[in-house]
Amino acid sequence: MSQAYTERVLDHFQNPRNFGQLDQPDISLEQSNPACAADRIRLDLRFEEGEIVDVRFSGQGCVISLAAASILTERIKGALLADLQDLSRDEFLEMLAISPRASQLKCALLAPEIFREAAYGEPEWPR
């Protein structure tokens, strides 16, 4: 079996969770990753009293970027914004349970960085 293309990653790629778009998102943000052939991911979020009550992602990308987006949506749906604010980059990568090669790091972090920017207005990760 492949190091990055684990069963879990491939499952999220082939059966993406929370894929699509929301009719009335509170916030919708789309960004691309020029390092990976201009892939684009859009994240739609709906909040109620500081809770992420709904989330969808859409777009196109490589396996790693799409699987990471799917795993991210699973993690954040139903969570409190305040609880996620301190989630670090490494904790997110641990969630993916793969160690992406250097050239794929940007792919893995595309969706979570869109989330950070949409939710907190800051794409940088807390240390």
Partner: peptide, 8 residues
């Protein structure tokens, strides 16, 4: 995606 092909 060609990026996936290259990685594999």
């Amino acid at each position: 995606h060609p990026h996936d092909l290259a990685a594999i």
